[in-house]
Amino acid sequence: MNDITRESRLLETFVTLADTLVDDYDVVDLLQLLVDTCKELLDVSEAAILLADTAGVLDVIASTSESSRLVELVQLSAEAGPCVESFRTGRPVSVPDVRDVPAEWSTFRDSAVRAGFGSVHAVPLRLRDTIIGSLNLLRRGSSGLAPEDAAASKAFADIATIGILHERSMRETTILAEQLQIALNSRIVVEQAKGVVAYTRGVSIDEAFELIRAYARSHRVGISQVAARLVDRSLDLPD
């Protein structure tokens, strides 16, 4: 992708995202769109967004792959690694070479090397003084993120934050906690729905997610809404 194409694609994406934020939107859809866009437009292999629950524990809410390899790795990074570091400090954490990390991140490092990742970039999701999670970009090669990609990732993180929090509800911290809980709960229902589809259709958990997304897309409804209907059994995905 040349620079002009890339710039116009980025612009296009931001317009789409801004449009989304005006309507009633599904937060799972929005975050999924964000990570997929990161993978498509930035020089990264995988992307994942994590949100903190009320106890401050970070949980994956959207990722470019549902494979346990990626999800487990990002969770490790959320326990001791760049992900939790960016969440704690509120600053982007760039790890150009995963082999080159502090000793206390060794579990994350080993897992990243095994999974074939060379570098990681973690951007906090923050609004003013409040940090609610982290956007994580993983690359196969070991070199830092290009400056323009780092800048774009910051913009993606901001959109994710606004999408989750709804600017106008930001005045009260109780509402903040509620908004976060709603986002996290909708992810729980998506996980349950993956189980339902995996069982009823006899497919893997990853394939189940793809089927749910495809149905949501073709019927123009949110992933969360499709998931809720799968879980209360009022919807069966057609063959």
Partner: peptide, 23 residues
Amino acid sequence: TAYSRRLVHQATGMVLAQLGITP
């Protein structure tokens, strides 16, 4: 861990489909 909770949610989905019960 967050990852293990995720697996438990997925398993919950399979069981609710197997038995036709609530989550």
